[in-house]
Every structure is written in structure tokens, then in C-alpha cells.
Design a protein around this nucleic acid. Structure first.
Lengths: 122, 122
DNA sequence: CCACGATAGGTGTATCTACACTGAACGCAT
DNA sequence: ATGCGTTCAGTGTAGATACACCTATCGTGG
């Protein structure tokens, strides 16, 4: 099998990852002083918008692996920004935004907005 | 400051990260049996195309942080797929694809090609 | 020559990411 | 009621990612 190196240079995966890295650096440079990573901001915002949401459903919503959200949610819970509630289905642990989480989201919003509005310039 | 949750739902960063994650899963599901991650494949392919390249320049080329490449390159070097050479400038450590690295790239290429050709279906 | 800013690269630390595997609870069919 | 496949979530492990900070080397102006 002949390896087409030029084809490799236009790898869709690499391109998507490059752009995601660049955008992440752009957003996180502004979110940093609020102590938030890009993924953490989107978790808080999603919960604010959708209300209490089971882990699996939230992971699906954010397009990340369920087990990835497990780790990330644990960090947010330690900081007191979200809480895992009990549900009728005792397997489920619906995530809910706490009041502190809502305040964190509010305070970080202008930084996110600035990044969002200037994202096209990257 | 009023938080526009609907605006947060169309975060460019989240969108880019979602797509990058999905594409990465797609490519890595095929690269897995070759023991390669997406980033590792792009490092090998870039070195095959560009020849020996200093770390900083390669990081720039791949759009990733220089210190990120430091860790990734160490793993590839452990596996014997790349080697860090000595240069006239003793600070520099140009990375070079080894013969084993070239063989690894060759053997993984069909898997990458299959992922590339089916990437649009995600 | 040599001091000093510039440049190449590495380390400590923290988070993100995901697969393989595991445990627990659920619900249905018998 | 109970056995069993399904579903929800956590753990072990490994690599990706990046910032703040560090060391070593280089080149140049004085």
C-alpha cells in the first residue's frame, strides 16, 4: 500500500483538532481568571439551560464520552458549582446547577461573550 | 450582566470541540489496532512529509502547544518510532522518523484512509 | 571578551478525553 | 418471585492538552 503523504496533510481529524485547540486557547485565555476551563463553562451553561440532567443525557448533549463527564462533574461538584441529586431510579444521578454554580456562570459570562464575539478572528 | 443561555448553546468553542471529539473517536476506532492515537499518527505523517523538524516548528505545524508535543514525542521515542537528533544548535532537538516509525505509518495508513474517506458520514 | 536579551526545549501540575471493565439497579418474561 | 438482559454510572489506565515556570544555549552590542 502506497502512503499518500499529501493526503495525510489534509486529515479532517487533524484539521478539526487544530481548530478546536486554537479556539479552546482563545476561550480559556479569557475564562482563566474565573477558574473555568472551556468544558466546565459548557457544563454549567448546559445545566442552566436544561435544568437537572442525568449524566448520560448531558454527555450526549455535550458530545463527550459519558466517563469523561464523570471526572469533570466530580471536579465541578468539589468546587460546589453542581450537585448530583438522588432520583427515583436509584442508578441515575441527575446533575443540577447550584446557586454558587449559577453565580460562577454569571460572573464568567462576559469573558465567554468576549471570546465568542472575537472567535472569528482566529 | 444578563446571561443569554441561548447564545451559550451555540458556543463556537463547544461546537469545534464536539466535532473534534467525534472525529477523533471515528479515526481512533480504526487506528486502535495499530496502537496509534490520532495525534501520534499526525506526528508520524508530518515527519514523513517534512523530514527532520525541530520541536517548536513541528508544534506550530500541528497547531499544538510546544510542551504538548514534548510529552507526545517522548512516547513516540520510547516506542522507537521517532528519534531526537543532535543539531549544530545544541538547544535544538530535531525530530526524525525512524525506519520503524515509517513502517508503523505504512501499516496504519489504510486504517487512516478508511477513516478519512468515511469522515463525512459523521 | 562578556553581559544580556532572545530562543529552544523541558518540568510540575491540572484538566480533558476515552476505552475496557465493573457494579448496581431496573424491568420484563416466565 | 426470580432470573436475566438492559441500562446507569464509576474505576483503572493511558494519552492529550496547556500554562507557568525553569534551564541551557545562542547571538549580539558594547
Amino acid at each position: 500500500m502506497h502512503v499518500d503523504l499529501l493526503a495525510c496533510a489534509v486529515c479532517h481529524c487533524l484539521a478539526a483538532r487544530k481548530q478546536a485547540r486554537a479556539l479552546t486557547r482563545h476561550y480559556e485565555s479569557r475564562l482563566r481568571r474565573h477558574g473555568l476551563k472551556a468544558t466546565q463553562f459548557s457544563v454549567l451553561a448546559s445545566l442552566a439551560l436544561a435544568g437537572p440532567t442525568p449524566m448520560g443525557e448531558l454527555a450526549e448533549l455535550l458530545g463527550l464520552e459519558r466517563t469523561t463527564l464523570t471526572r469533570g462533574a466530580a471536579l465541578l461538584e468539589e468546587k460546589g458549582w453542581i450537585s448530583a441529586e438522588k432520583a427515583d431510579d436509584r442508578r441515575a444521578r441527575p446533575l443540577r446547577l447550584t446557586a454558587a454554580g449559577r453565580r460562577k456562570l454569571d460572573s464568567a459570562y462576559p469573558a465567554w461573550k468576549a471570546a465568542q464575539d472575537s472567535a472569528a478572528t482566529i
